[in-house]
Design a protein around this nucleic acid. Structure first.
Length: 256
DNA sequence: TCAACGTTTCCTGATT
DNA sequence: AAATCAGGAAACGTTG
């Protein structure tokens, strides 16, 4: 049903980007088109295992996080609530809507998404062609005028995804209601104060993210306490309650 | 190859 | 009593 919108994608500044003979299904079912990624367990596929049109909100978040990290986008300029959408909704967003949601970074994100849609995850393969295309887009759209630092296309995507920081994981969980499952709860949204409601579940989730089944809340909380030093978190003298510090970004409602 | 970074692991002791 | 907090110390994996 989505085949038309994909194969007839109009955002293809460089025709060589998309092989017109390659079908949508082929693009996303062929292992060789995204060799850099591993599929997760069937019950919980990673965004790279799923077609953008079928991404859940969680997948959208994962993709966004990946883009921010891989391309060093300034997350503070991105309105995350605009991206609290399903893959289908994301795919229906126009370039203008991306710009509204994330400024110049939005154009970049739009470009990346359209390329994934058009050619699958081969977009991330380490080819000169892709690198050049990214540079072209970057030059004409955002890198010149924004703080985005130019980077070659991702060749270590998986590693990069795994390197996601704990506080960002916590932040994103807090901002993603359907993934949260009542694990975290805002205590004071404006001040960035939140409570860990299900400490064990939080540790389990973090452990899953880091592929570490020995993670416990005891150990996770030690890592959180290190954030007091760096101003990512501030101490709140209540059990299981934390507060984002001045060096944490991307959690504030008015900046979303 | 090395060193910095962000944890992870373990621990002792205090607090709730 | 069990869970959580506070940090020191050291190990560890990734990254530049």
């Amino acid at each position: 049903m989505m085949l038309d919108s994909v194969t007839h994608s109009t955002f293809l500044p460089n025709a060589s980007f998309c092989d017109p003979l390659m079908s949508w299904t082929d693009l996303f079912s062929s292992e060789e088109y995204y060799p850099a990624f591993e599929h997760q367990t069937a019950g919980d596929p990673y965004w790279t295992s799923v077609h953008p049109e079928y991404w859940t909100k969680r997948h959208v978040w994962e993709w966004l996080q990946f883009c921010c990290e891989q391309y060093r986008l300034d997350a503070s300029g991105i309105s995350f609530c605009h991206f609290n959408v399903s893959g289908l909704q994301l795919c229906s967003m126009t370039q203008e809507e991306f710009r509204e949601a994330a400024g110049v970074c939005g154009e970049y994100l739009y470009f990346i998404l359209q390329n994934i849609r058009a050619q699958g995850y081969s977009f991330f393969n380490d080819t000169e062609e892709t690198k050049a295309a990214i540079r072209d887009c970057a030059d004409s759209n955002c890198l010149k005028t924004s703080g985005i630092k130019g980077q070659d296309c991702p060749s270590h995507s998986r590693a990069s995804l795994q390197s996601s920081h704990l506080w960002e994981f916590v932040r994103d969980l807090l901002l993603s209601p359907e993934e949260n499952c009542g694990i975290l709860e805002w205590e004071d949204r404006e001040q960035g104060i939140f409570r860990v409601v299900k400490s064990e579940a939080l540790a389990k989730m973090w452990g899953q993210r880091k592929k570490n089944d020995r993670m416990t809340y005891e150990k996770l909380s030690r890592a959180l306490r290190y954030y007091y030093k760096t101003g990512i978190l501030e101490r709140v003298d209540r059990r299981l309650v934390y507060k984002f510090g001045k060096n944490a970004h991307g959690w504030q409602e008015d900046k979303l």
